[in-house]
């Protein structure tokens, strides 16, 4: 009961956020938009890597592919934007499904290298279709208009992303709780036993690739018309590694892990930048050239240190903090209960 109420209040707060944030915090809305789109991709990647155990270090490529499909449909062919976005997801899913086949023969490090390879190849290939993708110069996707409302500001776009995120979270949770989600975990944990239970490795591994590419494709579509500028070169190794870091950091295999990881990694650099700036301005160690340099670069240093700490002390990811906190709270309450109320025989 109280839990439901908390959810409702939390969701209302999220809905109100773009309305109440002052002008000076426009950068925060911008970062949130970006983080939530990345979260959508991360949810899909977490189904592939966290649940089905198939690593992918080239996932940004699916995002890029989805972005160009969505742009092509909307701005070249003239399909309505709200229709192009899911289509971009499905087309990316077909590509993911196809790329799942060569991945069937590979696992572990070899799969990592192979996915790295297609993450590199797909932007190169997109680049060849200059009429569609604009080559390295890129293209400028339009600002979407829905029901007469133009989604030109980050604040308006926030709602578009939020609706998509909510729907895709719901779908991901359904899949994880279904026979399909259980099959993914089964083949991750024991390929022999999974097959003996009737799970075809080829079918379910390619399905996991397809589902995760669908998420990347949808997010890519949103991304294209949010940034209003895309080039094949934007969807390279950097974003792929960011995605992988997010799911490990947030928590492998859970939807909440993907979202928490994306928000954390999305906001962390800004946070450390603020700390870094205030350290520089504080005037501490003003005469030490070395310390001034440390402060100047403390942005990257802090981000790195925090990442290492999380991986060291929270191997199950940031979402495990929540579980740990609850266990701690419960034991404390029980201990307090024993002291306060001396109980006799039950």
């Amino acid at each position: 009961m109280t839990r439901k109420l908390l959810y409702v209040i939390g969701f209302a707060a999220v809905l109100a956020l773009p309305q109440v944030l002052p002008e000076e915090l426009n950068w925060l809305i911008m970062l949130l938009d970006r983080a939530l789109m990345i979260a959508i991709v991360a949810i899909g990647l977490n189904i592939l890597t966290g649940n089905a155990g198939q690593i992918s270090l080239g996932h940004a490529a699916f995002m890029g592919f989805g972005a160009f499909v969505c742009y092509g449909l909307t701005d070249i062919i003239g399909v309505p934007f709200w229709f192009s976005v899911p289509i971009a997801g499905f087309v990316a899913a077909i590509l993911g499904w196809g790329l799942g086949f060569p991945a069937l023969r590979l696992s572990g490090h070899y799969l990592a290298i192979a996915t790295l390879g297609f993450g590199y190849a797909i932007p190169q290939i997109l680049n060849l279709f200059e009429g569609w993708t604009g080559g390295w110069t890129g293209v400028k996707p339009s600002v979407p208009t829905l029901f007469g409302i133009s989604f030109s500001s980050d604040r308006a776009y926030f709602y578009l992303i939020l609706v998509t995120l909510v729907v895709l979270v719901w779908i991901a949770r359904n899949i994880q709780r279904s026979a399909v989600g259980r099959a993914f975990i089964a083949l991750r944990d024991s390929e022999v036993a999974a097959q003996a239970m009737g799970i075809s490795l080829a079918k379910y591994k390619t399905m996991a690739f397809a589902i995760s590419a669908f998420y990347a494709g949808v997010a890519g579509g949103l991304w294209a018309h949010w940034l209003n500028y895309i080039s094949p070169g934007n969807f390279g190794f950097g974003i792929s590694i960011e995605l992988f870091t997010i799911i490990v950091l947030g928590g492998l295999g859970t939807v909440s892990g993907a979202i928490v990881g994306a928000l954390f990694l999305g906001l962390l650099p800004k946070l450390t930048e603020i700390i870094s700036l205030s350290l520089q301005r504080s005037g501490a160690f003003a005469d030490s050239f070395f310390m001034q340099n440390v402060f100047k670069n403390s942005n990257q240093v802090l981000t790195g240190v925090i990442l290492i700490l999380v991986v060291l002390y929270l191997p199950m990811g940031l979402v495990d903090l929540w579980r740990k906190a609850r266990v701690w709270w419960e034991t404390r309450r029980q201990a307090a209960g024993r002291q306060a109320v001396p109980r006799g025989v039950k």
Binding site: R182, S190, G198
Partner: peptide, 16 residues
């Protein structure tokens, strides 16, 4: 057994 699944979830996979 599938380590990431509970006992009854293992049995759900058994009925896949």
């Amino acid at each position: 057994l599938f380590r990431g699944l509970t006992v009854w979830e293992n049995l759900m996979v058994g009925q896949h």
